[in-house]
Write a protein that binds this DNA or RNA. Structure first.
Lengths: 146, 146
DNA sequence: TTTAATCCCGAGTAATTTAATCAGGTTTAA
DNA sequence: TTAAACCTGATTAAATTACTCGGGATTAAA
């Protein structure tokens, strides 16, 4: 989720390489590669290979819901232990099956109501993003001076 | 949660022994003991020792919210990795900190709106409970016949 | 007063999930 | 030709969850 938001925030100048996201967000490159493989299979991002390449959102940030990102990576938000099937107690429903189904729906609905664009627009997120790109800029400068 | 609901459902005739809950819900006795130690520390249940003893709800089922049970056992419902502190990225907030805080609140509110009594009243839960006590009754009969 | 039902406690284990590493590729702009 | 970037599969590490095990303490009832 953090990586997708970073992608949305830095999309203005062409494809965003995973190495940059790794640097800004402190997520290992190999791990990002696995996540983006799933996101690509889920058709949420497009990849551009070769130098100058990277990833791009497959749609406008307005039409990408948080829940889609989670679904693509996790294959579903689900609070039940039986993945909603209802065989939690030896082939039958356990006492609390419906409770967890209801909770799952609640979470799903909440995350459906928020798009990537909503997050990008939030002030506190812009503040964090600014801090992150400045930190990276400083780091680069420091290493070129040494 | 399942164990607490079982307790509420079977409270009519005195303290409920963990062995019965274990039998009905298919949860191991030792594990139940650990869970109820936490529930007792959280003042949600009272224990009665000795033969004929067991556990009782500390309050009316109407005034026990689902979220209290989960809090007592899990020590909190929290979707953030930093437990809400905000030091998720090297001492600072990560990009998605607020999102997960909001989600946590959403879940908390949902589970606050439901009491044990609400669950006890649900038809599908009564149906499951009936099935479970019949299964146990059959088992006892079968073992006495053999 | 003995017994057995029951709660109580702490240490250890197994399975699962999540996050990550590693060691190789392939593609393609410069 | 080179290096930047994506791509893939195998493996590992850490954390969490559910659970086991081996005892001990309390107390109602026989």
């Amino acid at each position: 989720m953090t990586a997708m938001l970073d992608l949305a925030l830095n999309a203005q100048d062409g494809p965003v390489p995973l190495a940059d996201i790794s640097e800004r967000q402190g997520i290992s490159l190999s791990y990002l590669e696995q996540l983006f493989a799933k996101l690509r299979r889920g058709k949420l991002v497009n990849s551009v290979r070769g130098p100058g390449g990277g990833y791009q959102l497959a749609y406008e940030p307005e039409s990408i819901q948080i829940v889609q990102v989670i679904d693509a990576v996790n294959e579903s938000v689900d609070a039940t232990r039986c993945q909603g099937v209802g065989d939690c107690q030896g082939g039958d429903e356990c006492l609390t099956h419906r409770l967890w189904c209801d909770l799952s729906k609640q979470i799903h609905d909440f995350l459906s109501g928020i798009s990537l664009a909503d997050l990008v627009a939030r002030q506190e997120i812009q503040k964090v993003a600014l801090r992150q790109s400045q930190r990276v800029a400083n780091k680069i400068q420091a290493s070129s001076v040494e």
